[in-house]
């Protein structure tokens, strides 16, 4: 049984202008569909990564999972005890006026969990003395460790991580990723890991979901996705990753940019940039079949 499951989850944001302006100019209300009909299962003990570019809705989806946003339609069901979240910006995710001790102790007080602040600090690679310090006395990587300690204080079985390393330097990123892998092994945690960086994802994920304009276009095991990407968008993303191996592989130049989510193209959202798009792709939204939402794949064209 999955630990977390999403069925047809959508979320709209009201981006209309103020009521008076609308009334004066006879404008309708406008909605931005940030997440569009997402179905997703997360199994206990695995790391499910969600990748996508800006505007793909991955951060909104993370917030829908932990309940910071309510879904406009669809349902999120969670069969575990508790989830916690780790945020992207280590400079904004800790209250600057609180001591580290109070930051880490807050979930214990609210959720009545029994943990020791000094144990938690040691678990994330900090010293127990650090409890008396304020966030500004730490580097970005250390703050992210404090964030992780706070999340662990709530005794979660699911951790939703929204770009936890994208604000960090490479060597610090490696430290944090390693810490997360170690913690998962030791505590049997389940991760939903949001990132725009495919290389980071391939390092931590068991399964990967690729998002484009609010929809999941492909889900597969990390191994399968990185060796045999199926959706044209996944292929394009993989192709765009700078090549450190210096293999000199030819790169197909990627055309175009992500369309404005306020005005998504009809049919498949990827059709304006897709080399395989045909008439059907331009008019009909592809259904999510067998791990991928693409007419060309379904028809066996690619």
């Amino acid at each position: 049984m999955p630990l977390l499951s999403l069925r047809g989850v959508s979320r709209d944001f009201d981006v209309s202008r103020p009521w008076l302006d609308r009334a004066l100019e006879h404008e309708p209300r406008r909605f931005l569909r940030a997440v569009d009909g997402v179905d997703l299962d997360v199994n206990p003990g695995e790391t499910l990564a969600l990748v996508g570019e800006s505007g793909s809705g991955k951060s909104t989806l993370a917030r829908l999972i932990v309940g910071l946003y309510a879904p406009t339609s669809g349902a999120v069901s969670f069969s575990g005890r508790r989830m916690q979240m780790i945020f992207q910006d280590p400079y904004a995710s800790l209250n600057p006026r609180w001591r580290v001790r109070d930051i880490i102790a807050e979930p214990m007080r609210v959720l009545q969990t029994k943990k020791e602040v000094s144990d938690l600090l040691r678990q994330v690679g900090l010293a127990p003395e650090d409890a008396e310090r304020y966030p500004h006395e730490f580097s970005g990587g250390q703050r992210q460790r404090v964030s992780i300690a706070r999340a662990l204080a709530g005794e979660p079985d699911l951790l939703v991580c929204d770009e936890p390393t994208s604000a960090l330097d490479v060597s610090v990123q490696a430290q944090i990723l390693n810490l997360m892998i170690d913690l998962q092994r030791r505590l049997g945690l389940t991760y939903v890991f949001i990132s725009h960086n495919l290389a980071v994802v391939s390092q931590v994920a068991d399964r990967v979901g690729v998002m484009y304009l609010g929809r999941i276009v492909e889900v597969a095991s990390a191994k399968a996705l990185f060796s045999h990407p199926r959706h044209p968008y996944t292929r394009m993303l993989l192709d765009a990753v700078p090549d450190l191996e210096l293999s000199g592989r030819p790169r197909t130049p990627v055309a175009g940019e992500v369309p404005n989510p306020l005005d998504p193209p009809p049919g498949c959202p990827f059709n304006p940039r897709c080399p395989h798009a045909n008439e059907r792709c331009r008019t009909e939204k592809p259904a999510f079949i067998d791990g991928v939402a693409c007419h060309a794949v379904a028809e066996g064209r690619i």
Binding site: G67, M85, E106
Partner: peptide, 26 residues
């Protein structure tokens, strides 16, 4: 909009507690 406020919401603190304990001092 800052993430420490969202973190407090994830923990499950009530709006009034967040306003007084987190937002007010800042």
């Amino acid at each position: 909009e800052k993430e420490y406020v969202q973190a407090a919401r994830v923990i499950g603190r009530r709006p009034l507690a967040i306003m007084v304990a987190h937002v007010l001092p800042n």
